[in-house]
Amino acid sequence: MNLTAQYIQKSRALLDTIEAQTETIQQAATWFSRTILAGRMVHLFGSGHSRIMVEEMWPRYGSFAGFNPIVELSLSFHNLVVGANGQRQAMFLENVPGLAPRILRNYDLSNLDSALIISSSGCNVVPIEMAELFQQQGVKVVALISKQHADKSTSKRPDGKKLSDFADLVMDTGAPVGDAMITVPGLDTPVAPGSTVGGAVVVNCIKAELARLLTEAGQPPNVLSAANVVGSERAVTLFESAYDEHAHRLAKLYQNVGIPSYVSEQADTLIPQRL
């Protein structure tokens, strides 16, 4: 069997693993629907290449508002590889204790919120601390890991706890230990990872189930759609509506954050005065 066929075959096996988690996917979608219907947001976080799944969820075609993508460039900007803003720094920073609370200090969290935290190993400090802090605020946490890889990995936290220890629900990408799925003859290290394939399938299954639940609840989402599918005029309307809804939801995360000010205390009663 050629290597292309091998990768496709192994990817089909990932799909089988994901299909076996249908009830778990539906549970995640149910929690997320409650958050969105309450006017709040589902927080998305992933460091390193887990950022890919954050962007797969929102914003892109076939997606809709209701998600807060928390993407820290210091943890996920890989383009330069070396030098300033290089990969070494990002890999170091994702294991620095105390960074997660500084990130979440920017948001006014509610127990109506929910969160999806993505980490293939489930062992890096920042994603674990994010999940821990969310749970402390009463936020439901869904973790997306690669179970085989996570089980064989060692947590970077001194107490040995992993992302799964701070998750109300755990989902599996199906990827193997080490992530890479293909062994090349004459090469002693495998290539071609699988967690991105599995992770993208999981988040899109959640998205589909979630769209169904919102529609059944009488609040069908404004889905970012291509003009060659819905027509140019409707495509523009959907884009503008979805982005505006995102802004309105995001405003709630900032309005009462941290130390109160006269603006937050009187947000609904301020009357402009002539100077």
Rank of each mutant, 00 (worst) to 15 (best):
R88Y: 13
P193N: 02
D188W: 04
Q137K: 12
Q136I: 01
A131F: 04
Q27H: 11
V82D: 14
D16Y: 11
G186S: 06
L44T: 03
A208S: 14
S153Y: 07
A115R: 05
F134W: 00
K252D: 12
D151I: 07
A29S: 05
K147I: 05
G122D: 08
G86Q: 11
P127K: 03
P260F: 06
I259H: 13
H246M: 14
I118E: 04
A90P: 01
A247M: 15
H149F: 09
P221E: 13
L270Q: 12
I182F: 09
E233R: 12
L93Q: 06
S195I: 11
K152D: 10
Q148E: 15
Q137M: 11
H43S: 07
M1E: 13
S153K: 00
L253C: 09
V71G: 07
Y262I: 11
N95E: 10
Q27W: 00
L37V: 07
M130I: 10
I128D: 01
S63R: 00
Q135W: 10
D172S: 07
R60Q: 01
R212D: 12
A20F: 00
C123M: 03
F64W: 11
V229P: 08
L275A: 13
S146Y: 00
L112F: 10
V141C: 07
S63H: 02
E23T: 11
A38E: 00
S225Y: 12
I25Q: 04
G138A: 06
L214K: 08
Q135S: 03
F32C: 02
G66V: 06
K207A: 15
L275T: 08
G198S: 00
N204S: 04
V82Y: 13
Q273V: 15
I18H: 10
S232L: 15
S241R: 12
V202A: 06
P260K: 01
F92N: 15
R60F: 07
I117F: 11
V81F: 15
M171S: 03
